[in-house]
């Protein structure tokens, strides 16, 4: 089984870091993972997207997917291409502090008889939570923690370790604040509300 997670945001929101941490955490739990980041340029405010694929066996999916099991949306500016790849039952965790757009997919917007075909939206005020923690740049980790709690795609311990493994030596001063961001995010959505795997728990 393979699970796709697409992330979108604007440059500077640590979208690529969140994707990397998610992939690395999956490896720590014994699963296989692949991710591909795409961005218009190394700059704040530009488009930045990432696709993470996690599976029980070596990943066979191409790194560019045509539809996704789930999404993490940090900002609405460049989210349209991702929105078109949502399936009717996709799980979408949204940074509600900044997101200003409609969640409806193209199908559900034109077909009022199928209101259930709206992806399952979970709102988390990630930027507000991070700002209250004094670490506004940690918003993507708040959202990642919330996503992990909801889906149990990966556990909190693996996320924390993967974050420590992903922070370069010259950014070590942020490790503590990032731990808090992941933990607070993990508390902000109901545990296992939308399970990723048939049985809860980690891979053998």
């Amino acid at each position: 089984m393979e699970r796709e997670v697409m992330l979108t945001g604007i440059g500077g929101q640590s979208v690529q870091l969140a994707a990397q941490i998610l992939a690395r955490a999956s490896l720590l739990e014994g699963r296989h993972a692949m991710f591909l980041g795409t961005y218009g340029g190394t700059m704040r405010g530009g488009n930045t997207d990432s696709t993470v694929i996690i599976g029980d066996a070596p990943i066979v999916s191409p790194p560019i997917v045509s539809s996704t099991w789930s999404a993490m949306v940090m900002h609405h500016q460049f989210w349209q291409p991702l929105r078109e790849k949502l399936r009717p039952d996709s799980i979408v965790v949204v940074n509600s502090t900044l997101f200003e757009n409609s969640f409806a997919t193209a199908d559900s917007a034109t077909d009022s008889t199928a209101p259930e075909d709206v992806p399952r939206i979970f709102e988390v005020p990630a930027t507000q939570i991070a700002t209250d923690l004094g670490n506004a740049l940690g918003a993507s980790l708040v959202l990642l923690g919330a996503f992990a709690s909801l889906t149990r795609l990966v556990g909190l311990d693996a996320l924390l370790q993967a974050m420590r493994d992903s922070i370069p030596s010259y950014r070590r001063q942020h490790v503590g604040a990032n731990e808090t961001a992941l933990e607070r995010g993990f508390e902000s959505l109901p545990p296992n509300g939308a399970p990723a795997w048939p049985t809860a728990g980690v891979a053998q």
Partner: peptide, 9 residues
């Protein structure tokens, strides 16, 4: 590009 920039375990 895909081979150079895709990350895998």
């Amino acid at each position: 590009y895909l081979l150079a920039h895709t990350s895998e375990g």
